[in-house]
């Protein structure tokens, strides 16, 4: 074995390197075509506008790692935010209102998981129905209108801080997103809970034979997604100062795209929180880039789709090549 080969085996490149470089290249191309894009404020703006999407992508990594997809998280976000807002309007302290959002999200997520286990159905099927239930409940409780806390409630530090109305140099929603990412990274890769999820996603039957409570873990992951969506609802309320009947409806595809672009496969057994953060930025940079480049509204959706398909396709090709090479190397070593 040559020295260089030994060195390359020791220095293993992180899986997220590809998407990170792709992000830099995207930024470079847009910046070269439109130099105004290369501005720290633009970058912070991209991050702030996509932080809620990113939070949901972090939760989706856990689901995908266990071969599950939740279609209801946008509605959970909406209903949690609506309940928090309405309770604040009714005079409940803001801190308690945030807690209500978290509990509401936890309840809805747990219900998703429980129904999925009880009916022996994938979460995607159950959440086809519960998404409409949560959406309908939101429309009923908010009386089909926006939930807009009055000025005295919005004078609270939570709204002032999260809404960027203080002199804090970085949009606080970005800090919240990154802190959540760090926490969930350690939960996925450094906790027994995370190991269980990855084991179940890798091979559910083996995991069951190894004594892992598969059903319990499925409920826990669905509940985690619910809590994150509930948290996202509260953060959205603070960030935008109001929540609408339509908030969260269109998040499904960009959120799943962000997780997958980041490198979490649909096949389960692995997942990357860092990748989801980078995937969120890729989605955000593409959306911002089409505006900066003056691509008209009709074409922007097409461009976004093309770039995402190419990014995911190429990433998958690279992974297959790496697997094949590893298999060949392994066979050669025997």
């Amino acid at each position: 074995m040559s020295t260089s080969k030994a060195a390359s085996r020791r220095i293993r490149m992180p899986d997220e390197l590809g998407v990170f470089i792709a992000l830099l290249v995207l930024i470079g191309i847009i910046g070269a075509l439109q130099p105004k894009f290369l501005n720290i404020n633009t970058f912070l703006n991209v991050m702030a506008n996509n932080s809620i999407l990113g939070m949901l992508a972090l939760g989706t990594v856990f689901l995908l790692a266990m071969r599950e997809i939740d279609l209801s998280f946008g509605m959970i976000l909406n209903l949690s935010g609506v309940l928090a807002g309405l309770s604040m309007i009714a005079g409940v302290p803001v801190e308690l209102g945030i807690l209500i959002a978290l509990v509401a999200g936890l309840t809805m997520g747990t219900l998703n998981g429980y129904l999925s286990v009880q009916f022996r159905l994938p979460l995607i099927i159950i959440t086809l129905g519960t998404a409409s239930i949560y959406q309908g409940t939101s429309l009923i409780v908010n009386n089909k209108g926006s939930v807009l806390p009055p000025p005295e409630v919005k004078a609270h530090w939570f709204f002032q801080f999260m809404g960027g109305l203080t002199d804090f140099p970085v949009p606080p929603i970005v800090i919240v997103f990154l802190v959540l990412a760090v926490v969930l990274h350690f939960v996925l890769h450094r906790s027994r809970f995370g190991y269980r999820i990855l084991a179940i996603g890798s091979n559910p039957d083996s995991a069951r034979l190894a004594g892992i409570n598969v059903d319990g873990s499925r409920i826990q992951v669905a509940a985690l997604m619910g809590v994150i969506a509930g948290f996202g609802g509260a953060m959205f309320l603070g960030f935008r100062g109001a929540i609408d009947p339509t908030t969260g409806y269109q998040l499904l595809l960009p959120v799943i795209a962000a997780a997958i672009i980041g490198g979490t496969p649909l096949s389960g057994g692995s997942g990357t929180i860092i990748g989801a953060v980078l995937g969120t930025l890729v989605v955000g940079v593409i959306a911002t880039g089409v505006v900066f480049l003056g691509i008209d509204a009709t074409w922007s959706t097409f461009v976004t789709g093309v770039v995402i398909v190419v990014a995911v396709g190429i990433d998958q090709l690279v992974r297959v090549q790496r697997r094949n090479r590893a298999a060949v190397a392994s066979a050669g070593g025997q």
Binding site: G18, I21, V25, L26, I29, L33, G289, I314
Partner: peptide
């Protein structure tokens, strides 16, 4: 990576 970048650049230029 170059292909992703090229796809974006070409599509953006086209549109």
């Amino acid at each position: 990576i170059a292909a992703v970048a090229a796809a974006f650049a070409v599509t953006a230029a086209a549109c």
